[in-house]
């Protein structure tokens, strides 16, 4: 169930060292070449930071939009601290009827506390996101 009461919920920060073998597995699975630079969409897989009160996946939930802003290039072996937050929940009438939109933001910082990337995912649930 997704509702406005979820807005503002956030995860604890998670510290992650970007291990070369994990990036390699990601690159091989996607079929893309990589070097010492972390592929752009890899940070989209940083979902281990659970938001208490939000249970995913929800049946029928689809990924509508994805935005990344990179403040600097990430390299293999870098450490990032990231957290996730529910930035918005809103309803809109679309071609499939009433839809609920949820905007999840992930922000990543380096060890100095400098912002490295931010990511915004818009997830769309039919009805009110109730299980069918």
């Amino acid at each position: 169930m997704i509702g406005k009461e979820l807005i503002g919920l956030e995860s604890e920060p998670v510290l992650l060292k970007i291990r070369p073998e994990v990036v390699q597995r990601f690159a091989e699975a996607t079929g893309i070449p990589f070097d010492e630079r972390v592929p752009p969409t890899f940070v989209g897989t940083l979902m281990q930071a659970n938001i208490a009160g939000l249970e995913l996946p929800i049946i029928g939930l689809i990924h509508g939009e994805q935005k990344f802003t990179y403040y600097r290039q990430l390299y293999l072996g870098d450490s990032v601290t990231y957290k996730r937050r529910i930035n918005d929940v809103y309803e809109r009438v679309g071609k499939l009827g009433n839809m609920t939109f949820m905007v999840l933001e992930t922000t990543g910082y380096d060890l100095m506390g400098e912002l490295v990337f931010s990511s915004s995912s818009t997830l769309i649930a039919p009805e009110k996101g109730e299980n069918v």
Binding site: T30, G31, I32, P33, R37, P39, P40, T41, G44, T45
Partner: peptide, 14 residues
């Protein structure tokens, strides 16, 4: 996965 399609677009760019 939408993110798999996005990764292909990223690969085109990189």
């Amino acid at each position: 996965h939408g993110m798999l399609t996005m990764a292909q677009m990223a690969a085109m760019l990189t």
